[in-house]
Amino acid sequence: MIPAAFAYARPTTVDEALQAIAAGGEDVKIMAGGQSLIPVMRLRLAAPETVVDLTKVAELRGVREDGDSLVIGAMTTHSDILRDPLIAQYGKLIAEATETVADPAVRHRGTFGGALAHADPAGDLPAVALALDAEFVIAGPGGARRSVPAAAFFVDYLTTALEDGELLVEIRVPKLGEGWGVRYEKFNRVAQAWSIVAVAATVRREGSTIAEARIGLTNMGSTPLRATAVEQALVGADVSLETVTAAAAQAAEGTEPSSDLNAQADYRQHLARVLTGRAVRAAAGL
């Protein structure tokens, strides 16, 4: 299977990339790592007129600190993430989820920003970005930048707030250091498979009380979701198996998961409750 013919641009700066996107005609696809886009093009599910390949845009790759935030370049590969000392220190939830993405060869090419812009609800990183209240920095035609919070970025199945002509440049997430526990709990059946359901949990304890809890759900609807009811039930609660179990029982509230050959919707809701319990227990140190 070979993709349909396309025009190809390989910019080396963000400015060049924006120009190539603007000049690319009606149907332009931006290629990050290509690990979802190339298979989709081979299957001819997509046949863009122009592909703008970002792999040579060095300024989009890497992780830096900015005050209380980590700033992750959109073209930082999954392998980069797993080797990055700042991620190891302040981004453990991202690292845990990234480790479960596909397989090592795919992680050498696939990127953090590409996975988020692709916005597959079964992808692992969207729910993590949502749980972390990430900010998406987007460059538009002419170079103007805007910032979109994660809650507004994921619009629908494979659909984000990115408009035609725009480019995801970097993602800002809060540093989670001392006091935060994390766990990405993923359920799938075979190696390198997508999540049937997964739960991203991060919890900050103050003594024997849960001070903050952020929980994202993977593949429980057409976009990643927050388990808001669980978060509300946890904040201020004692760290105990009883309170965590009672809170996790609300994990499927407001979710509308799909049914497919891997799982029916009601089974996915069951998984969300079970996996939320496991993830929160681990993140809270129980």
Binding site: Y8, G34, Q35, I38, P39, R42, L43, D53, S79, D103, P104, A105, V106, H108, R109, Q192
Partner: peptide, 22 residues
Amino acid sequence: TSNCGACTVHLDGESVKSCTVL
């Protein structure tokens, strides 16, 4: 389909699936 890895080669020293690289 990027699944089986039979086409794995090293690109600048890192493993990649050569059916999923242009």
